[in-house]
Amino acid sequence: MMSSNSASYSPPGGIKAPAALQQILQQAGIAVNGTQAWDMQVHDPMVFDRILQTWSLGLGESYMDGQWDCQRLDEFFYRLMRDELDESVQGFAKVRLLYEIARSKLFNLQSKDRAFQVGEQHYNAGNDLFEAMLDPRMIYSCAYWAHAKDLTEAQEHKLDLICKKLQLKPGESLLEIGCGWGGLAKFAAERYGVKVLGITVSSEQRALAIEHCQGLPVEIRLIDYRDLTGSFDKIVSVGMFEHVGQKNYAEYFDIAHRLLSDQGIFLLHTIGSYATVKKTDAWIDRYIFPNGHLPSLVELSQALERRFLVEDLHNFGHDYDKTLMAWLSNFERAWPQLQTQYSKRFYRMWRYYLCCCAGFFRSGQGQLWQLVLTKRERQQTYLGYRPSF
């Protein structure tokens, strides 16, 4: 916290911000109670104490509590993250920062007995919410926008991109680790004639996925990946690896190696960080994705060493910004119907989540990778695929 004799800046409206915090905001082109769409509109001066004490947690919780607003939250976060000024602010919250680092080092936050926690907290939030926010197939991962005119088409292109990279053939077996609401499983079974086993840690996802895949050779199980057995021609994991955790990477890839046939292909689609980070964002961890961790390429390459060959690496991280903004637009449009089931605080939490993630990817700190992996035993040369449309 700032001392009582610290210099302060007095923005329009008379609310005073501590000078050091104000300087950081100004470096990002953000004003307190300014006129630009990305400026903070502060209603309660206690916001600054909350930010200085716990940074990310205080910033997010004070927004949820209505203590400040911002017309373009996505641009607010983009400006903070563009020059990594968010790291400067964290210096004020050293105690909390050290706690988060120690917590991630000392404990396996993604252990088997914690595996279903993210399903219960996030993915079970409500199928009506996700149906309103997502595309008709309910694909909750980055879309592929290179040749798409809208979210529905961008998600279909992403699914087809995955299937073609996997070189799926009729009659093959496909394991999907983290199947969501069954969108990819249904697409692969219908379009490519494969048999699919999809697994999830969300009971709500499983129920709807079974409904979506009725009549198709698709099985959906509520199971942790560490309990899987069998052998599969192809394996895919889309948007699930973020929940595995660095302490479990070796085990995760060992299991995938055991489950994949020698001539098979494994496609891993994951959010990543452009730099190795020691902690998870405290607000995201508490309110959105408990126990998550975004890998860096260094962490991935170390875990893959002596396990898999990297045949292809495709980065389309900026597409996640566009995907998140499309989800935000759908969510805002649906809110008049959703508000009978969800609180105003939930609305502010969800809007904050989508906007801060959009800013994360817009800044380049957030990346989206698709890795095509094979075993050394595979005898065919893998020919990479990019759509021509």
Score class of each variant (00 low, 15 high):
Thr152Pro: 04
Val244Tyr: 10
Gly126Met: 04
Thr200Phe: 05
Tyr385Ile: 09
Asp49Gln: 14
Ser261Tyr: 03
Glu211Asp: 10
Asp150Gln: 06
Phe76Val: 04
Gln71Thr: 14
Leu151Gly: 01
Phe76Glu: 03
Gly34Met: 09
Tyr385Gly: 08
Phe107Asp: 07
Ala250Val: 11
Ala115Asp: 11
Ile199Pro: 05
His257Cys: 09
Ser237Met: 02
Ile51Met: 11
Asp233Thr: 01
Glu242Phe: 12
Phe316Arg: 12
Ala37Pro: 08
Leu73Thr: 03
Phe48Gln: 02
Met1Tyr: 08
Leu300Gly: 00
Ala146Ser: 14
Gln367Asp: 10
Ile265Phe: 08
Ile288Pro: 00
Glu219Asn: 13
Trp181Ala: 02
Arg378Asn: 02
Gly91Pro: 02
Arg191Ala: 14
Pro136Leu: 12
Leu73His: 10
Thr270Val: 08
Ala326Trp: 13
Glu242Leu: 13
Arg137Val: 08
Tyr347Pro: 00
Glu299Met: 08
Gln167Ile: 10
Phe316His: 12
Pro18Gly: 11
Phe308His: 05
Tyr353Val: 07
Asp150Gly: 05
Arg362Met: 09
Val42His: 04
Leu297Pro: 00
Ser4His: 13
His257Lys: 14
Ala20Gln: 10
Glu153Pro: 01
Leu129Phe: 13
Pro45Gln: 15
Asp233Glu: 05
Ile210Ala: 12
Ser329Phe: 03
Asp321Trp: 04
Phe77Lys: 14
Ser363Ile: 11
Val47Arg: 05
Leu354Phe: 02
Arg206Phe: 01
Asp285Trp: 01
Arg226Asp: 04
Glu211Tyr: 05
Ile271Ala: 13
Lys16Gln: 14
Ala115Asn: 11
Gly364Ala: 12
Ser296Cys: 13
Glu299Lys: 06
Ala37Val: 12
Gly230Trp: 12
Pro136Thr: 11
Arg206Ser: 04
Leu52Thr: 11
Arg206Ala: 15
Phe316Leu: 04
